[in-house]
Structures are given as C-alpha cells and as structure tokens.
Amino acid sequence: MLAKMMSYFLLGLIRVLTGSQARWHGCPPKAEQRIYFANHQSHADLVMIWAALPKELRSVTRAIAAKDYWTKTPFKQWLTSAVFNVIYVSRDRTSDEDPLEPLFDALQNGDSIILFPEGTRGFTGEPQPFKAGLYNLALKFPDVVLVPAWINNVQHVLPKGEVVPVPVLCSVTFGAPMQLGAGEDRRAFLERARAAVVALRDV
C-alpha cells in the first residue's frame, strides 16, 4: 500500500519536474521480453525510464541497481525493492558467483530488464564505454529483444551530489531493436550498442 502510494508520488513528481515524455522511434511499446539499455547520468534515470514505460509494462520491467549503494540504508533498500522491484547486482568481485546471476534468474522468469551498461553515472555528455554485461546477456538469451534508449537532459534535473531537483523537460527515446550478430566479437558488439544509444540523441 505504502509502496504503491510512493510509486504514484514518484510518477507524479517526475511528470511535474520533467514532463517524462516517451518517444518510441524504432519500436512500439510491446509486451515482449526486452532488455532496455540506456545512458546513465543521474539517479533520476531509473525513475525516468520507468515512468516513460506504459503502465502495463512497468510491472514486468525491472531495473538493475548496485547492491552496495542501494541497500546502504533501510529507506534506499525499501525504495528499490518494494517500489521499483529492482534486481540487485554487486559491483565488487569478491564473491565467487557470477555477478550477472540475478539477471539470469530474472530473464528466465520472463521479466524485462532495464540496464545501464556504463556501470556508473557519467559526468560528461558522452556515455562511457559499455561493460561486458550486455554482451553476456545477449549471448545467453538470444530471444530477448535488445532495445537501446537515450535519456535526454536528466543530468540537469539532479546532478551527482545534489539533493533538490529542478524542473527541466526530459525525454526518453527508444530506438530500433538490435541483435547480437552471429559470431560477433564482444568489443564490436558493445561499440555498436553504444553507438545505437548515442545515435538516438539526435533523432
């Protein structure tokens, strides 16, 4: 109940602050299993892309969040687990298990996921090189549709280190689905995926 109210509150807030406009350029919103991958510049990115999805898809689309940061306080943990139902991934490689294991579980369950392949928030306008996670997921789940997305302007809403957000109009542009080519090299694929995201900036 509280989580539901919180999610409506956040949706309302993000709409007032950013307009949260979704632009479906390469594909329509559709209830198929997808991996959305986008640039990452702000904490608001997660809420932004989540608010941009239609209500029906929101419940089956789960974002990835760093375990160390988002479970630090009880509030952060509640927000990410009860409201957003995120998948936690640990960034430190101390444990033996594959860090992508929770993602595999989620995809096997049939959930769609939201991934920020840069791994962390960037400071500049250009996205950093993508981490290998996206490639590994594409390799293991060839049937899941990969959809690139560009989140525009959100870094101005809540820059790293700031607490009070300011209103700026933002949009999420979803591009045409892409596939992992047969025998495509990891680096080539990641570069192609990054280019697909960056290309959406100017459409």
Partner: peptide
Amino acid sequence: ALREFLTLSPTRLGDH
C-alpha cells in the same frame, strides 16, 4: 513556462 524556457536554454551544472 519557466520549465520550458530553461530547457531550451541549457544551463550548466554550476547553475543548479
């Protein structure tokens, strides 16, 4: 109106 105005005249992080 101000939200629209400022979106199209981009500001820098220092203006936050």
